[in-house]
Design a binder for these strands. Structure first.
Length: 200
DNA sequence: TGTCCGATTGGT
DNA sequence: CCAATCGGACAG
């Protein structure tokens, strides 16, 4: 196991679909305030390709205080608040002013599982991080990490498991029925048969 | 300033 | 199936 942070050029690649797919198997690390590592292996992710993609917050070049981090350099965190109670964690990709991002939809708990159980009201382990809102609770991801650099020391990604191409599935993204023809694009990627992939 | 609604979740 | 819960986006 390596503990080297993914380099900038992993994130700045031009094809957000490739980055989303390649994020599967990577370790998402968010140390708590005592420096203890809490982490999960990414098992599900979705690509959002603004400005063309109607499902993306950056659709049509929308650029507001909320979406500003999407316009940053690849390797920036974009954390937004939705439904009045949940945060969602995204990895910004591509170069400055190209607002592409990957929503992390599920991870498999790896380090700090006791802490995750505490934060998630002692739910069974398979239910701790199997959804974009749930994993933000388990990893304590919130507004404070919005716009943060993934090569910094508050949140980052590391190389971990190599996922064979044959085990990577793809299909339509979740919860974007408003996105017209964009809703059917197979831009959601997940690891086949992994028990920590979200239900829907 | 007012209204509408969401890249979800948990309970009925 | 549906309520929770509130900030963002946009119309006026």
């Amino acid at each position: 196991m390596s503990s080297i942070k993914l380099p900038r050029d992993f994130y700045t690649r031009p094809n957000v679909l490739h980055v989303a797919r390649d994020l599967l198997g990577k370790l998402l690390v968010v140390p708590n305030r005592n420096g203890k590592r809490v982490s999960g292996r990414i098992v599900e992710a979705e690509a959002y390709r603004g400005p063309q993609d109607r499902a993306a917050h950056s659709y049509g070049g929308r650029r507001t205080r909320r979406t500003e981090p999407m316009y940053g350099v690849g390797g920036t965190a974009y954390v937004f608040f939705v439904y009045g109670m949940y945060y969602q964690f995204n990895v910004v990709t591509n170069v400055v002013d190209t607002p592409h991002a990957v929503l992390i939809r599920a991870v498999e708990p790896v380090e700090g599982i006791e802490l995750m159980r505490k934060r998630r009201s002692s739910q069974p382990d398979h239910n701790l991080t199997n959804g974009p809102g749930k994993l933000c609770i388990a990893l304590e991801i919130d507004r404070r990490l919005d716009g943060d650099d993934l090569l910094g020391n508050k949140v980052w990604l590391e190389e971990d498991a190599k996922i064979p191409r044959a085990r990577i599935m793809s299909g339509p993204r979740i919860g974007i029925d408003y996105a017209a023809e964009w809703k059917d694009k197979p831009w959601r990627f997940w690891i086949k048969d992994n028990p920590y992939v979200s239900k829907h």
